[in-house]
Design a protein around this nucleic acid. Structure first.
Lengths: 193, 193
DNA sequence: AAAAATTGTTGAACAAGTTCAACACGATTA
DNA sequence: TAATCGTGTTGAACTTGTTCAACAATTTTT
C-alpha cells in the first residue's frame, strides 16, 4: 500500500493508534515527479508539505554570487518542505528538484491546518520531528566549522552511501560547501593513497 | 512580575488564554546564574529547559582538535536547551555558560512531560518555536557556506549589536567559525577604510 | 598592590580552498 | 549521425584563512 512507509514513519517510537494513523494518511495524496522536474521554485509560495516514498530530491538556494547552495537531499522516508515559506506565507528562497523519477505523498496548506485541528497527535508528531531536525542542523553547523572539506566528504559518503550514488559531483560539492573542482582533487588524492 | 517576559513570548502571535498562559508559567521556577557559571557541561545529562529573562549565555561544544565551537548565544527572551540530550536521555555534547550574571526560568524534564500532557497548547507552541528555529539554522548553514568571514562578521555585528557588546573576540570568532587572530585582522582592515 | 591568567594585536610562513581556462568524456537533443 | 550541452579532471596563479610566536593591555585572583 502506498501509505505503508508513511504509517511506519509516524508510528515509529510513538503511541499512535491504527485509527489515528489512518486518519493522518487520509490527508495525503500520492503524486509522481519526473527526473529534473521542480516541485518548488525560488519565488513561488510553498503551499504543501511532502513525504518521499520513492526517488530522491535536492533542496537548494541560489546566493547573490549565483552559486547553488544545497541545503539537503531527501530520499525515501524523508520529509520535504520549505518551512519558512509555508509557515510565513512568503515567497520561497528554495528550489526543490527531483534527482530521479520520484513519488511523494503530499498535503496542502489548508489540509495541514485541518490535520492539526482534528488530530492532536499530529502536533506532537511534528513537534518531535522538528526537534530531531534541529539536532541534525546543529551538528551540520559544527561539522562545517570544525572539519576540513576532506573530512566532510568522508563523513557524507560513509553516512549516506545510497544518496551519493544518485548525485553528480557538482551536487555533492554544493552540499559540502566547496567547489566541484576541489571535490575532484579530494577524490584524486583519495585514490592515490 | 518575573513571568511577564515568558507570557509575552508564549502569547505573541498565538491565541493563548490568560488561564493557559498562567498554567504554562506555573511549571517554571526562577533561578539565578553567576557570570562564568555553567548551566550544563559536556558529558552531563541535560534535564531541563530554560528561558532567559536577564543576562546572556553561550552554548558551545569542544571538537576533537580542542577548539571551541559556539552554536549560539542566548540573551533575554531566548530559550536555552540541549534538545538532543534532553530528548534522547543521553550525555550532552554541549556546554552552556553564563557570560554575565543572569536569570532564567527553568522547567525540569518531568514537568515538561506533564506540561505537554496537561496543556495541549504547549505542543503547538513548541512545535511552532522549533519550526522557527529550523529556519534560522538553515539560514546559518547557507551563510556559513556562501559568505566570507568578513561578510559573516558584518552580518552578525549588525544583526545582534547588543549581544556583541557582551562578547570577547574569541567567543565571537568561535561563533563565526574563524580564529580569533583572523577576526582581529578583519577588525583592523575595517578601521582603516 | 602584586602576581597570574586571559585577552587582543601583529607579522611571517604556511595550508586550504578558489578561480579560470583548457580538455576529454558521456549523455541528450536536433 | 552530428551537434550540443553538462560533467569530471587537471594545472597554475591566486585568495582566504590558519598557525605559531611574541608582545602589550586588561582582567582576575591572591
Amino acid at each position: 500500500m502506498i501509505y505503508d512507509l508513511l504509517i511506519e514513519n509516524i508510528t515509529k517510537n510513538r503511541a499512535v493508534s491504527i485509527a489515528e494513523a489512518e486518519k493522518f494518511c487520509s490527508f495525503f495524496s500520492a503524486k509522481t515527479i519526473s527526473k529534473r522536474e521542480f516541485l518548488l521554485k525560488q519565488g513561488e509560495f510553498c503551499k504543501f508539505e511532502a513525504f518521499v516514498t520513492e526517488g530522491c530530491f535536492r533542496v537548494f538556494s541560489l546566493d547573490k554570487k549565483g552559486n547553488e547552495n544545497t541545503l539537503y537531499f531527501a530520499a525515501k522516508d524523508w520529509w520535504l518542505m520549505d518551512i519558512d515559506s509555508f509557515m510565513n506565507h512568503k515567497p520561497s528562497d528554495l528550489n526543490i528538484q527531483a534527482l530521479e523519477d520520484s513519488k511523494i505523498l503530499i498535503i496542502s496548506q489548508e489540509d495541514k491546518t485541518t490535520l492539526y485541528n482534528e488530530l492532536p497527535i499530529a502536533e506532537k508528531f511534528f513537534r518531535i520531528m522538528f526537534q530531531k531536525s534541529i539536532v541534525a542542523w546543529q551538528r551540520r553547523v559544527v561539522r562545517n566549522n570544525s572539519l576540513t572539506a576532506k573530512e566532510r566528504y568522508y563523513y557524507f559518503t560513509t553516512r549516506y552511501p545510497e544518496i551519493v550514488l544518485k548525485l553528480t559531483d557538482r551536487q555533492m560539492a554544493s552540499y559540502l560547501g566547496i567547489t566541484h573542482e576541489f571535490l575532484s582533487k579530494i577524490k584524486k588524492q583519495d585514490k592515490i593513497q
